[in-house]
Computed example of a mutant assay.
Amino acid sequence: MADQMRKIVAELPDLTDVSGVSAVMDERVAQGDAAFVADLGIALARTYGASGQPWQCRSALDHAVRLLAVSTGRENVTQALRLFSSAGISSRKLDRRAASLLASSHEAADLAAAFTGHASEELRACLVHELVLRGVAAGEAPGIAAWATSPHWRYHPLAWMPLMLSGMEEGADLPSYSAYGSGHAMPYGPSQGRELARTADAGVPSAQETTTETDVRAMGRAVASWAEESNGRIEARVFQFAAPLNAETVPGVIPTLGLECLRGAGRKTRLSVASCPPARAWRVLFAAASTGGAYGSGSYGAYGRLAAWKSVAALTGCPEDSRAAEVEARVMACDWYAFDADTKWFEQVAWDIGLATLSPDGRRLAVLAATDTD
């Protein structure tokens, strides 16, 4: 171990500020010595273990991971993969994060190294779909296609999704990363410009609630982390109507369903119901799943994509064993609506979702609402 590296490892727990260590790593990468940063990260994990690390070690390791992953160049990719796959550092959670970091900053040609060199199968699976989200046809990309189209990973949950973007996935909000931070869009909040008038005298057919625990779990998959990792609430309901609804009656029906999220909505409390393109609904659910709520980091792109697919499948009433192509066809055939209200249920901070989907026959209406706060 080089003297400088040995000194950093030994003295790190006594530091009150690790910015100097980060600066050393930055300088080494700028000089083309990414191997130093990978070696340092591996040495830190070996010295301080995989759990119970001092905060200084966690901070330095995090910077090493981020720095190597977002620094362009094939050698940086190679060294990042070596670090990610080393003992004491490798984990499924890191694989998800690393795949998002790598895909955000590198060309597919450079990332092909992950499919022949140091990389877990989980990282490869995540990387395939992180690239798909960024418009790469993974089933055709040199160095990637052979692995992505091989049958050996067909039982992996991510293999269920198509290897290219579907029509409903347009406009996915993807995070941007740097060595010192990240950012992402938050496409939540009030609907704008497409408010539908509620017709007071429109006949509302009788309805029966058919919600099951399976429905609740599947419909809420994209927003599950809002409740599990943060302070959020979720309401998922399914209703069957005696007669078909249509675009004119849906806005008037939604307030009559007894939804907890709309309790108190009325003349003095704003309620907006607007038509919503399927791509907009998917975009909101993908953002919720991939980036998480007020707390937690979400599932990142690959599993965020899967969660959004599964939520829209359940909202449209697709059987659990449906193929992705069947789900997409059903999603595009349904009518989608976004709603929001100034009720006490919605936190109205930054994370509010209200979606409803009407089946092609007009008799099944599914509703998903979610809110979170810091």
Rank of each mutant, 00 (worst) to 15 (best):
A356H: 00
A159Y: 07
A45Q: 05
G264W: 04
F286A: 04
A287W: 07
L131K: 11
V253S: 06
D321C: 06
L158V: 00
E248S: 12
L262G: 05
H156R: 11
M219S: 04
S100E: 11
C318V: 06
E347A: 14
S272G: 12
R97F: 14
L111S: 02
R323G: 12
S91K: 02
R221T: 15
C334F: 01
G139W: 03
Y188S: 07
S22M: 15
A333L: 01
I144G: 10
F241R: 01
D14W: 05
L67C: 09
S225R: 06
Y303S: 14
L315N: 06
G362S: 11
S104H: 10
Q4S: 13
T149L: 10
G41H: 08
E213P: 04
G292W: 08
G20E: 14
T357N: 00
S85Y: 05
A265H: 05
L306H: 06
Y177A: 07
H63K: 07
T199G: 13
P255A: 01
C334W: 01
S90I: 15
G193Y: 02
E248D: 14
R330L: 11
G232K: 07
S311P: 03
N231W: 09
R124H: 11
A370E: 15
S206A: 13
A99Q: 13
R217G: 02
G143Y: 01
S299K: 11
T212V: 07
Q208H: 08
V327A: 00
V204T: 10
E170W: 05
E140R: 14
L158E: 12
G49K: 12
I8W: 03
T16N: 12
F36S: 08
A87F: 11
Q348W: 13
E209D: 10
S176P: 07
A287L: 04
A119F: 10
E260A: 12
E260P: 00
T149Y: 12
A274W: 00
D352Q: 13
A103W: 15
P277C: 04
E213H: 13
R233V: 10
G52R: 12
F346T: 01
L163R: 14
V238W: 00
M332S: 12
L101E: 09
T16F: 10
W160V: 08
A307L: 11
T373S: 15
S299E: 13
A137D: 14
G49N: 06
R46Y: 04
S322N: 06
A80D: 00
A87P: 08
L61C: 03
L174Q: 01
A324M: 08
V37Y: 03
M161I: 10
S150K: 00
F239E: 03
T256L: 14
S299D: 14
P13R: 09
E347N: 15
R283S: 11
T291A: 12
A141L: 00
V136C: 12
G189E: 08
D340N: 14
V21G: 09
D342V: 02
A341K: 09
V253K: 00
S85H: 07
A64F: 08
V136M: 08
C318N: 06
